[in-house]
Amino acid sequence: MKSMKNIDSNKKRSLAGHFLYNLQTSLRILVVMVVVLGIAYPVILAEVGQVTLPFQSGGSILEFNGQKVGSKLIAQEFESAKFFHPRPPGDSASGVDPHITPENAYSQIKNISDATGIHQNSLRTLLNLNIEQNKVTNGLFFAPPYVNVLEVNLELVQQYPEVYDRLQQVEKEDNTAALNGQSQQQQKVKQRGENNLG
């Protein structure tokens, strides 16, 4: 009986020792790997990105007149009838993709032409150029044809500065004509909704 007890207690002690040995190793793995994988890996990559790929690693931010105008990859709202419009946020998976199908873009041509006086054919050419450009970006075969709304609108503003210079005045006149602050309030609400979608 005595010897049996001894064996038992030995076993228990070794089990506890075993547990402690493994716990210590696990904790050391935690510390070392958190430093290597959780800190060094992403931080070094971020530094490398800042130096070698500043545009992409910073979120593909485009500039216009020296100001940040948004990300090439993220949709923004366009109120004016002079611009192409992205899909409503609730329509896509991310809710922030700036891409629309060529059919959708072509269907907006008439309205934009009416609002700006730009010839429909010119708008169509502009869209086709963007579609071709996107095709190359996607290795010809790896995505269906699409239009990047922000890129196309930027192109419009750059190609037709006189048309889009007057945007400001026209809209101000519209606002005074409406004679109430409702439209502005609506804008704010819409924006908040967008922010929530992230």
């Binding site: 990105g49 790929l53 100001q67 940040k68 990300s71 709202e77 366009f78 004016s80």
Partner: peptide, 26 residues
């Protein structure tokens, strides 16, 4: 690195504040 070349961001910043095209014009 491959994904970064294609356009995936990698930075310790949490957000970027930018204007929109319409706000710059207006």
């Amino acid at each position: 690195l491959v994904l970064m070349v294609i356009g995936v961001p990698q930075t310790l910043q949490t957000s970027v504040e930018t204007n929109t095209l319409e706000s710059i014009i207006n």
